[in-house]
Design a binder for these strands. Structure first.
Lengths: 223, 223
DNA sequence: CAAGAAAAGTGCGTGCACGCAAGTTTGCGT
DNA sequence: ACGCAAACTTGCGTGCACGCACTTTTCTTG
């Protein structure tokens, strides 16, 4: 239904896409990310520079896409996979944590270099954080299905809030990963969080949203 | 404390900034937004093109800044102005509605042309929507103060969620304003929302977040 | 299977974002 | 009042995003 024959044309497109982002990441790691021009990436992937940004709107996007793979879709699938009985808030939280700790496939090798890239170059860091917004559409779909919400913005708002929370968690994590040792002070006499692990940060960021999910879920039961 | 003497240098900077965004909007309205080059805006404001993007990172940003003025800061102030007794969720909602319906100052004149610009040109629409993210930092500050949260991400997550909700509301509003008449169908047999007014859309988008605010507020009372 | 429609790739031209290294203005200390 | 240091502006050069028109490839239909 979704992919009767995946289509031959479509496969080529996906192949080109992967070749591009793969080349982009590889080149960015071995030379510095500044010493990679679009022309180089395109050449390494065997396409014209013009074709390159038929696929990616910016140079950073290509590199980030290699790191991210298709995590967005996976999160949505992971949520859908949970049994319908569990709290929606828990399903989402666990799905997110699961997909964001499971970095790539079996690519622990280059992970060091990649992480260094993201923490060092601001442009890449920003692009990476912006990429988290991509989970919104698929997440909206699964949430809307559970809530059965027709034309009200609840599902979208919740999905977007999750995306924002994930972004915040990643932002803090990258920052702490960059500056070695514990983080600084906040000024109001309160201690800042002492650099938690990524799963911890994700849970902490998503926790405040749980009541909103509960309330939304409750409404669908009543109606 | 915040502005003992505002400083003379700073005033010039603000003047230039305003001159730029003013020129950008004016030119964009009278000619089409595509027939305005950065060079033109810079010339109209009496600075070099290079200086232009010491102030704005993109051409769209300047135009949008003129429409937005400093709405971000105003929302935060409006929240802070509410008495401490009211629900935080209500304070935020009302502040947002208040500041987003009160478009500019007394500039009802060009509002038509401006709105047309935003609905027509996609690049401008996107820039305008992205600008809503700017409310996050000041909102985080006021929320954090009310919650007294030191190093936990709750305030930031809530602020970011509000920004996302506002963005969604504006997005839907602009879309409906573009296509004359009522909006289309969603496919799942459910009717989509029949094009509400902007305040209605804002309230509808913010409503799902109220339980999260309540829960956060409850925690600060207990502790 | 052939012909045409749809979609992807490509070359070219234009305006833009931004780093860098001057030149110029503003503010402060003595 | 004078001069120094920091902040702001500017000219220049490079690489990039993207519209447009055109070629090549893939899918569909009679």
């Amino acid at each position: 239904m979704t992919t009767p024959p995946p289509g031959l044309r479509e496969r080529k497109k996906q192949a080109t896409r992967e070749a591009l982002r793969e080349a982009a990441l590889r080149l960015a790691v071995e030379r510095g990310p500044d010493r990679v021009r679009v022309e180089d990436i395109a050449e390494a992937a065997g396409v014209s520079p013009r074709t390159y940004n038929n696929y990616f709107a910016s140079r950073e996007q290509a590199i980030v896409a290699a790191v991210t793979a298709d995590r967005e879709a996976r999160v949505a699938e992971a949520v859908a996979a949970r049994p319908a009985g569990v709290r929606l808030a828990d399903a989402v939280t666990e799905a997110v944590v699961e997909q964001y700790t499971h970095t790539g496939e079996g690519e622990r090798e280059r992970e060091r270099g990649t992480l260094l890239l993201l923490t060092t170059r601001t442009a890449l860091r920003d692009a990476f954080l912006d990429a988290t917004a991509g989970i919104e559409p698929p997440l909206t779909a699964v949430i809307a299905e559970r809530l059965g919400s027709a034309g009200d913005p609840t599902a979208r708002v919740l999905a977007a809030s999750v995306a924002a929370a994930v972004r915040i968690a990643l932002e803090g994590w990258l920052q702490s990963a960059g500056s070695s040792g514990t983080a600084g002070s906040s000024g109001a006499g309160g201690l800042v969080v002492p650099t938690g692990s990524l799963p911890d940060r994700l849970r902490a960021a998503l926790a405040p949203l749980a009541p909103a999910f509960d309330a939304a879920e409750r409404r669908v039961v009543q109606s």
